[in-house]
């Protein structure tokens, strides 16, 4: 077993995942540095969401390794992976995935409440983040009353509020118009850079991937045509996956 490079906060090696016979991930390797914004680009069905779910511990790959902050993720129990998601990761869903019966305020505060932060402190932090993402005025509304753009911003506030180490954004602008999407991305990246939060951004749009520091491309579950920054070129790597 090869220990991952020290400067990578998240590191994966030849991930394989084929849930129903067809390979969703076929030997994908990648490393993400701390504070970096990495775009995972590819058409629909190329395995972006599966890759993000594997990296965030929601799915366990059939083969391959995932290391986070110097510790293995793929061997952890389901309970420990839940804890990891709660304490260190944030997640932005394509459609927001807000809890419909909670107000916007409580939705944003939910990660802190789940960690055991007192109610008052969690709501104060939520107010702060909602203001920063320009959705402060709708704090007392239900998600059903918001526009898709506002909903996505609330989802971003919820992902950022606990100042996680890594935020996984799965097609965060997929349901938004261009201008709204661009603004949402700008706020997300600004907040991430100011707090040194690593962002992994899955998208099928090149203009979205352009805001990232680095882009890797997926096609049919494999990495293709990536930039040659080259610090991982040892043998034993799956032949299909090209190095970063």
């Amino acid at each position: 077993m090869v220990a991952p490079p020290d400067n990578d906060v998240l590191w994966a090696r030849s991930l394989h995942y084929s849930p129903h016979g067809s390979p969703a991930l076929d030997g994908v390797s990648l490393g993400v540095r701390e504070g970096e914004i990495l775009a995972v680009q590819g058409p629909r069905g190329c395995g972006k969401t599966t890759l993000l779910r594997c990296l965030s511990g929601q799915l366990v790959p059939e083969r391959g390794e995932i290391w986070f902050a110097g510790a293995e993720v793929h061997t952890l129990s389901a309970r420990r992976r839940e804890q990891l998601r709660r304490d260190r990761f944030g997640w932005i869903d394509p459609a927001g995935a807000l809890v419909p019966e909670l107000t916007v305020w409580e939705n944003a505060a939910l990660p802190l409440l789940l960690r055991g932060t007192p109610h008052r402190a969690a709501l104060a932090a939520a107010t702060d983040w909602l203001e920063r993402l320009d959705v402060g005025p709708c704090a007392r509304q239900r998600p059903g009353a918001l526009s898709p753009a506002q909903r996505q911003r609330v989802a971003a506030a919820r992902a950022l509020i606990s100042v996680p180490t890594v935020v996984f954004a799965d097609e965060p602008t997929a349901t938004l118009h261009r201008a709204e999407g661009a603004q949402m991305l700008r706020t997300l990246t600004t907040a991430a850079r100011s707090h040194r939060i690593t962002v992994i951004l899955a998208t099928h749009q090149p203009e979205v991937a352009a805001v990232a520091d680095r882009t890797i491309e997926l096609l049919d579950g494999r990495r293709v045509g990536s930039g040659q920054l080259g610090d991982e070129t040892e043998e034993g790597r799956d032949a299909c996956s090209l190095s970063v």
Binding site: Q58, L84, R86, V99, L110
Partner: peptide, 12 residues
């Protein structure tokens, strides 16, 4: 769906 969303957040 709510349950899935909560599990994504890491709720036990």
């Amino acid at each position: 769906d709510t349950r899935d969303a909560l599990l994504e957040l890491g709720a036990t």
